[in-house]
């Protein structure tokens, strides 16, 4: 086991309730620097709710919720993002009536006061050449895969330490899915820490270091990606072996 010190995100007893409905019922979760951690589970298991709760977009309670030494309790999303954790939401949710460039500019809004947003943007366009070609197009006119690239690029503009990705492969053609997974691997190689929610269990476990399996708002199973891949539960339920 690694020392608790290198954990970037550490959550104990997280619950998320929408009125009387409890979507997440007390989960513990740790993400260490430089890891890709994946959250797996069926529809409605509480994966998206967990991510939304972490960035403060879903109503949440927790015994302990610490990111990079900061207690997240009660912090609004904008503050959490400024501290270095951001979310690429499910369904991409690019600002479709704004241009690609404007989407990226807003993503870097946190830097506008200091730093050099132009540099970050140049960096981003080098990483996503397709976006450079489409800079002045409306984001809504991009294909699904391009929109996902834009959503990820927009999130990266805030230069996060921890990136939460909610179903980045949803609704994309298989070749595009491969490119998205390549990208996620690349981002990790450049030092980004990633918490990934996916329904594509096989590919997630291939790039992830560790994983958690959620069911009915609880952690049902956790371990290294390797151990999860070979566990009979995962084999039966998701990998269809």
């Amino acid at each position: 086991m690694t020392m608790p010190d290198d954990s970037l995100l550490s959550i104990e007893g997280l619950t998320v309730s929408y009125g009387a409905v409890e979507a997440v019922r007390g989960i513990d979760l740790t993400v260490r620097r430089g890891e890709i951690v994946t959250l797996l589970g069926a529809n409605g298991a509480g994966k998206s709710s967990t991510l939304n709760a972490l960035v403060g977009l879903a109503p949440r309670k927790a015994k302990r919720m610490v990111f990079a030494g900061t207690d997240l309790t009660g912090l609004p999303p904008e503050t959490i993002v400024r501290r270095g954790m951001t979310l690429v939401p499910e369904g991409r949710r690019v600002f479709s009536s704004l241009t690609v460039e404007e989407n990226l500019m807003l993503g870097g809004a946190k830097h506008a006061a200091r730093g050099n947003p132009a540099q970050v943007k140049a960096d981003m366009l080098e990483r996503f050449p397709i976006l450079a070609e489409r800079l002045h197009q409306k984001a809504g006119s991009l294909s699904g895969g391009e929109q996902q690239m834009l959503a990820i690029g927009r999130a990266l503009m805030s230069s996060p330490d921890l990136l939460l990705l909610d179903e980045p492969s949803l609704g994309l053609a298989p070749q595009v899915v491969d490119r998205i997974f390549d990208l996620i691997g690349n981002l990790r190689d450049r030092g980004l820490t990633i918490l990934l929610v996916e329904q594509n269990v096989a590919q997630s476990l291939e790039i992830a270091d560790r994983g958690y399996v959620l069911a009915n708002g609880r952690v049902e199973l956790q371990g290294s990606a390797e151990a999860l891949r070979s566990s009979p539960e995962i084999q039966d339920a998701y990998l269809g072996a």
Binding site: P77, L87, S97, G107, K110
Partner: peptide
């Protein structure tokens, strides 16, 4: 731009770190 984005998706605008 933030106002146009807010009209489209207020929650996501907050994810840009804008108050």
């Amino acid at each position: 731009r933030a106002m146009r984005a807010a009209a489209e998706d207020f929650a996501v605008l907050r994810l840009m770190g804008l108050r």
